[in-house]
């Protein structure tokens, strides 16, 4: 039995997970270095639970609550912004619908030139976008998958 072998077992023995063999005991009886190591390990075991523990400042809880409120306010702001955008989009759709209805029923007259110009603009834009459509589709798919994986990992981290 060597000092190194004893050294590897000291903490397991002191914690009650292992026991000294007769060889180890014989070595310990004569080796001052190992005896010193055991005494140091016992000192560490004695002092570890008694070391000073850091305590939070008195304002800690109020600080946490202030951060919670701030975070909630930001979340509500984001929700409000989304709601406002949705309302604006809805209003735009209603206005467009009413205008379309009025145009189709003849209440509003739009010149043939304007209609032709709009058709041409739509056709040109469509023709430019069409060749890139697979790229846009793949990019959108990857973005969706990325967001899905991010959401899943966040969700998994918080579970249990």
């Amino acid at each position: 039995m060597t000092c190194d072998q004893i050294n590897l077992r000291i903490d397991a023995v002191l914690d009650g997970d292992e026991a000294w063999t007769s060889d180890a005991r014989a070595h310990l009886d004569t080796c001052s270095r190992c005896q010193s190591r055991v005494a140091l390990a016992q000192g560490i075991n004695r002092w570890l639970p008694q070391l000073p523990v850091d305590t939070p400042p008195a304002t800690f809880t109020s600080g946490v609550m202030a951060r919670v409120r701030r975070e909630r306010w930001r979340a509500e702001q984001a929700l409000d912004a989304g709601f406002n955008v949705a309302i604006a989009a809805g209003l735009l759709l209603i206005v467009a619908g009413v205008a379309g209805l009025a145009w189709s029923s003849g209440l509003i007259v739009v010149g043939a030139d304007v209609v032709a110009l709009m058709r041409e603009a739509i056709a040109v834009t469509g023709a430019e976008i069409a060749p890139q459509l697979p790229t846009y589709s793949v990019a959108a798919l990857l973005l969706t998958m990325g967001l899905g994986v991010w959401w899943w990992t966040e969700h998994a981290n918080f579970e249990r």
Binding site: C3, L8, D11, A12, R33, R37, L40, I44
Partner: peptide, 28 residues
């Protein structure tokens, strides 16, 4: 892991100060 942590702590506490005499060691 806890045993290894305590062994590391022991080794740190056993480190002799620079220039001090090496303590005598028994046969290894």
């Amino acid at each position: 892991h806890l045993h290894r942590a305590k062994r590391l702590l022991r080794e740190m506490l056993e480190e002799p100060r620079p220039g001090s005499e090496q303590r005598t060691a028994n046969s290894e």
